[in-house]
Design a protein around this nucleic acid. Structure first.
Lengths: 235, 235
DNA sequence: CGCTGTCAAGAGCAGTGCTCTCGAATGTGT
DNA sequence: ACACATTCGAGAGCACTGCTCTTGACAGCG
C-alpha cells in the first residue's frame, strides 16, 4: 500500500502538515485577491513548485477549496464566539446579540471573498461535502445560546408569535436540541428569522445589492439588528 | 468603419437579432444545467458553430452572461408584477404581499442557477455593469407599491419603529422616491428589512443552508413571510 | 547500509476564453 | 445589373486551466 499518509508522530508527517498549511495560506491569499476562481497552477507558481506537486497534498482543486471553506467557517465561528464571550455582563443578551451580529459583519467585510465562499452561491460543479456541516453551525450555536439565556431569564414569551404547526414544529424542535438551546419552537423560529435577516443583510451589503443606495452602512446595519432584536423580543 | 451593427430595419438586422436570441437561449439552457460556469465553446458546439463565430454577436463571455443576467432580472420582475396584479382585491395588501413573496420564491426554485446568477456571489472577475440596475429594481418596486398602498389605507403607523436618523434617513427617503413609494422612512425601512429577510430566506433555501434541517420548506417559507408581514404591519 | 516510501519535476491531454486572418456569402448603392 | 462594402463562419493559434502519468532523486526507517 503506497502513497499513504505517514505515521502520526513521524518527522515526515510534520513537514507534510507544514506544507499543507503553507499551501492553504497561499491559496487563501489568492482567494482573498481573486475570489473563488482559485488556480492551482498560480498557487504552485507562488510556492516555487510545479503544479503537479500540489496533488501530493490535495487530491483536487475542490478539495483544497473545501479545506479553505472549513477554515473560513471555523474562523467566522470563532469570531462570533469571542465576540459573545467578550460581553462581561452575560445577562445583557441585547448587548450580546449586537456584539455577535457586528462581529459576523465585521468578519465578512474583512474577508469578503471567503464569505462568498461559504455564504454565496455554491461554486459551479462543486458540492459542499459533509465535513463542512460541523463548523458551519458555530455561529448558529452562539445565537442559540443567547436566545436560550434570554428565554431562561423570562424575557421571551410565545405570545404574539403565530404558533408553529407540525410537522414543521417538530423539525424546529429537533434543531433547537441540536444546537443545545432549550427554547420552544415559536421562539426558535423567531431566532431563525432574525438569523436569516442578518445574513441577508450581510449578503446584500457584500454582493453590491445596496450599492449606490445606502452609503451609511454601519447605521443601516445597526438599525436592522436593532429592529430584529425587538422582533425577537430581546431587551 | 467596419463591423458595425446593420441598419435598424434591415433584413440582416433581423437575422442578427434572431441569432442573438438563439445564442441566449442555448446559453440559458447551459446555465440552467451547469450553473454560472458557462462555456462559450460548449454553446457554440450546441449551435453547430465554431467558437470564434460567437464573438460576432457577443464581444466576450462576460457580455453574454450579462445579457442573461438582465433577462433573469426582467423575468423575475415580471413574475413579481403579474403575481401582484393577479390579486383582484387591490386593497388586500396582505394577500398581495404573500402572492409576490411566493412568486419570487417559486421563480427562484424553478431556475435556481439563474437566481444564483443575480442574487448569489458575484462571478469572479466579473462586475455587474450599470445596465443591470434598472431591471434589478422591479421586484423592489412591486413591494414598494404594496407598502405604499397599505400606508395610504392607514394600515401602517410609525409607532413602534425606532426613528431613522439622518443621514441614513435621507438616503432611505431618496430610495422611497426612487421606487415611487410615498411612505415615511421608518416604514420604508421596515419594508427593506422584510425584503432582506425574504431574499435571505430564498438564498438559504437555494444555497443549501437549511438542507438536512428543514424539510417542510413551503411551511417554513410561509411562516417567515407571515411573520415579516406582521413585522411590517400588514393585515 | 540498503530498501522503501515520499517527493518534485516534466511532459502531455483535454478543455477554456480570446484574437487574427482568410475566404465566402450577402445586402446596398450606383 | 454590376461592383463594392459589409458581414459572417471557419480555422489556426496563443496562453491559460485542472489533472494524470512517468521518471528520477532524496530521505527516513529497519
Amino acid at each position: 500500500m503506497t502513497e499513504k499518509t505517514p505515521a502520526a508522530g513521524s518527522i515526515r508527517a510534520r513537514v507534510r502538515a507544514e506544507m499543507i498549511d503553507e499551501i492553504k495560506n497561499v491559496a487563501r491569499r489568492h482567494v482573498a485577491n481573486e475570489g473563488a476562481a482559485l488556480s492551482l497552477r498560480a498557487v504552485s507558481r507562488d510556492m516555487g513548485m510545479v503544479s503537479s506537486a500540489l496533488y501530493r497534498y490535495f487530491p483536487s482543486r475542490d478539495e483544497l477549496l473545501t479545506a479553505l471553506i472549513i477554515d473560513a467557517y471555523d474562523s467566522m465561528g470563532e469570531a462570533a464566539e469571542t465576540a459573545d464571550a467578550n460581553v462581561s455582563n452575560r445577562s445583557d443578551v441585547l448587548a450580546r446579540w449586537h456584539a455577535v451580529a457586528n462581529a459576523l459583519r465585521a468578519w465578512s467585510l474583512a474577508q469578503p471573498h471567503e464569505y462568498a465562499l461559504i455564504y454565496g452561491s455554491p461554486v459551479p460543479g462543486y458540492a459542499a461535502p459533509r465535513d463542512t456541516v460541523g463548523p458551519a453551525t458555530r455561529p448558529v450555536v452562539v445565537l442559540g445560546a443567547i436566545l436560550a439565556d434570554a428565554y431562561e431569564a423570562g424575557m421571551l414569551t410565545e405570545a404574539g408569535s403565530p404558533p408553529v404547526r407540525n410537522p414543521l414544529r417538530r423539525e424546529i424542535a429537533v434543531l433547537s436540541v441540536h444546537i443545545g438551546a432549550k427554547i420552544p419552537p415559536s421562539i426558535m423560529a423567531r431566532g431563525m428569522i432574525a438569523w436569516t435577516e442578518l445574513f441577508g443583510a450581510i449578503s446584500f451589503e457584500l454582493f453590491g445589492r445596496i450599492d449606490n443606495t445606502i452609503d451609511e452602512r454601519d447605521d443601516w446595519f445597526h438599525y436592522q439588528t436593532r429592529a430584529m432584536a425587538t422582533f425577537i423580543g430581546l431587551r
